[in-house]
Simulated assay, not measured.
Amino acid sequence: MQFVDEFRNPELIKRLSDAIHAEVTARTYRIMEICGGHTHSIYRFGLQEMLPPNIELIHGPGCPVCVLPVGKVDEALLLARTHDLTLTAFGDVMRVPGSKESPFQAKAQGADIRMVYSPMDALKIALADPSREVVFFAIGFETTAPSTALTILNAKQLGAENFSVFCNHVTVGPPLRAIMTNEFFDLDGFIGPGHVSTVIGLDPYAFVADEFHRPIVVTGFEPADLMESILWLVKLINEGQATVENQYVRAVQRAGNRTALAAMTEVFEERPSFEWRGLGYIESSALRLREPYQAFDAELRYSVTPIRSPEPEGALCGEVLIGLKRPEDCPLLGTTCKPESPVGALMVSSEGACSAYYTYVHGRLVTSGERS
């Protein structure tokens, strides 16, 4: 706790805030925090209130559950219902609404859907009953993809023929490129994701600086981490410098995690394209199983047909996810969309922007009468 407390030291955070105030000029600074974990820290610790008013923090598409389009949930539930199999998924995924129901709701109606803490848990279920087909609903960025890859390697070694993976792993670089080439975005810099960078390192962000001439600072999740990174970004923006910097040196190395990257390279290859919530189809932005491991590919085993499902009526999930809107702009937030009755994925996930806003800001505003 002492190590954590050092990064939450009020005097240190105040000094960083004062330094940021001293560095800003009259211009506007539009900075996107890519990771949903950063969004939660910003709201939780009230960091926006400690910044000059001309620094605008914009939420980005770094919430692994949130970027999954509605149709992918529908595909998984159809898979579970039509093939009499066991579908396994992470806890956040269990609550994500499809077009008609969430996995938890489908489970309540009799579908064999189980929450797991890791893909290895799903493999253990398959090994315990070889007569039962078990599918792991794999989601997430390069942060979670290595564990799925290692599980598939184990499944092949153990001959678990009744185990397969519905693979929806995505990669962090392509959505950033899509955002920066979108005419609606005018961003000055990026707070780079910490967790995914422990796996991929720093080099995959080089295009942000080299091609789009914007600085990016890979950042930890404590308030002092974020304030220091914002200070770095303000200085880089003022100097017209576009570089990739690593503030999160206690966890991130430039080359990333070579063991994790090797496992991913062995098992996965790029998909030609993949649908993202709020961004549509993006080329080479997701992963699928390579030919030697396709026996464990649920899409191929069960001939999964793609489903395109609309966003919930009235919800702004896609726009909030990519920073075009803020959670408080959505008319459903705090009314029909709450943590206990989520309409969209951004209210479900522990990294969702709407969940963060509702938890740390909305209730306070309602109590004070600023929002009805």
Rank of each mutant, 00 (worst) to 15 (best):
N9K: 00
I13V: 12
I13C: 07
L16F: 01
L16A: 04
D18M: 13
I20W: 00
E23P: 15
T25D: 15
A26Y: 11
T28S: 15
I31D: 09
E33D: 14
C35M: 05
G37Q: 05
I42N: 00
P53R: 06
G60K: 12
V65G: 03
V65N: 08
V65C: 07
V73Y: 00
R81L: 08
R81K: 12
T82G: 06
L87T: 08
T88Q: 11
F90G: 02
M94I: 02
S99Q: 06
A108M: 04
G110E: 13
A111Y: 14
I113G: 08
R114W: 12
M115F: 10
V116Q: 07
V116A: 09
D129V: 02
E133G: 01
E133I: 00
F136T: 06
T144C: 04
A145V: 10
P146R: 00
A149D: 07
L150N: 04
T151Q: 08
T151N: 06
T151C: 11
N154A: 13
L158D: 10
A160S: 15
E161V: 10
N162W: 03
C167T: 11
N168E: 14
T171Q: 02
R177C: 12
M180D: 09
T181L: 12
E183L: 10
E183I: 07
E183D: 14
F184P: 10
P193L: 03
P193G: 07
P204I: 05
I216G: 00
V218K: 01
V218P: 02
T219S: 04
F221N: 04
E222C: 03
D225F: 05
L226N: 00
L226A: 00
L231G: 00
V234S: 06
N238Y: 10
Q241G: 14
T243K: 13
V244Y: 07
V249S: 05
A251G: 06
R254P: 13
N257V: 12
E266N: 14
F268M: 07
R271S: 10
L279W: 04
G280K: 08
G280A: 10
Y281N: 15
Y281H: 15
L289E: 12
L289H: 11
R301A: 13
I307R: 06
P310H: 06
E313G: 12
G314K: 04
G314S: 06
A315M: 04
I322T: 14
I322G: 11
G323L: 04
G323M: 07
R326G: 05
A345L: 01
S350H: 10
A356P: 05
Y357I: 14
H362F: 14
L365K: 15
S368Q: 15
